[in-house]
């Protein structure tokens, strides 16, 4: 078992522009099973070929799912059409939808969240790096694959590049990852941190979790409440933006300080009170996790993890 992805994941890619093509090639190189593409203007029968890999490209998600039994979609569609692409996947009842796109209008996401509420689909993103699971060679996103290594630590983050940063430190410290999830930096996203924490808590392949938050919003407080209530696995947490001047929007649409609850201090206090181990410096996430795992007797030296 594992969270969100596994070796039965059959990936559909939506949006085969230049960037989508580049990224799907890297996922194929990584060993991910890509079964279908969807791109407007294509009709069934056309194929996308790369090296030894080929997959058919369809005009609609419904047709692609029907013909290929795809069970996970990755969306690289540009922002004006991203919400439409998500809604199309919800209508086609794709169980897991991952949307990478940055800059989706917030009112579009209000519609998406309404459609998700009574659906069979789960959404990760938008404005996220996606999900990667090294043990099953499954890369549903834009990650640099080389820094990842299979192991027993889950990673959940609002920021994409901070997933890479944290994972690089973990791998250097000899700690592999079970699944890494970037939930996205926008004000309205699909699954939030606490939902991913719940998945990790119930996942036998995960022994500990790195939680990376940032200033703005209340998602880390919700995560802290979940940790306090239900989490028995150790959590190492870092909050980005402790030194950001208040009131300025720092790039992520979600990262604006709203009153005192949005500050790094408030979030760190909530997480610490919930029992999370705080890494004050973003450069010490790996070493902090190493210490936590060793104390819990869960440190697996590299090689033994497989």
């Amino acid at each position: 078992m594992s969270i969100l992805l596994n070796n039965r994941t059959r990936l559909l890619i939506q949006g085969l522009g230049n960037e989508g093509q580049n990224q799907i090639r890297r996922s194929l190189d990584y060993g991910t099973k890509v079964v279908a593409g969807v791109h407007p203007g294509f009709r069934g029968g056309e194929t996308f070929a790369y090296g030894n890999h080929t997959f058919p490209v369809y005009a609609t998600v419904t047709e692609a799912v029907e013909k290929t039994q795809a069970n996970c979609s990755i969306i690289y569609v540009p922002a004006p059409g991203a919400a439409d692409a998500i809604l199309e996947n919800i209508a086609a009842e794709v169980p897991l939808i991952v949307c990478i796109t940055e800059g989706v209008p917030v009112h579009d996401m209000i519609r998406v969240r309404t459609a998700l509420a009574d659906s069979k689909s789960k959404l990760i993103g938008p404005n996220c790096p996606g999900i990667i699971q090294p043990a099953s060679n499954c890369r549903v996103g834009i990650h640099p694959p080389d820094v990842f290594m299979a192991g027993n630590v889950g990673v959940v983050s609002r920021s994409g590049t901070l997933v890479y940063e944290a994972v690089d430190q973990l791998t250097r410290a000899g700690i592999g990852q079970s699944t890494c999830v970037g939930v996205g930096g926008d004000p309205i996203i699909g699954e939030q941190q606490q939902a991913i924490l719940r998945r990790f808590q119930n996942d036998p392949d995960t022994d500990a979790v790195v939680l990376i938050g940032e200033i703005g919003g209340l998602a880390e407080q919700a995560a802290a409440a979940y940790i306090k209530r239900s989490m028995t696995k150790p959590v190492v947490a870092f909050i980005a933006g402790a030194t950001a001047p208040p009131g300025r929007r720092m790039g992520h649409a979600g990262a604006i300080i709203e009153g005192e609850a949005g500050t790094a201090e408030a979030k760190l206090a909530a997480l610490e009170a919930a029992g999370a181990v705080i890494s004050r410096s973003p450069a010490e996430i790996g070493s902090t996790m190493r210490r936590v795992l060793e104390e819990a007797g869960k440190y697996q030296s590299p090689g033994a993890a497989e």
Binding site: R158, S159, G160, L162, G241, G251, S281, P282
Partner: peptide, 22 residues
Amino acid sequence: GAGLAMATMDTLMLHGGEPANF
């Protein structure tokens, strides 16, 4: 990346430096 950019500022300040910008 916005998250890494904030974390970079945080790291600089933890080492006693001051970022001129985000």
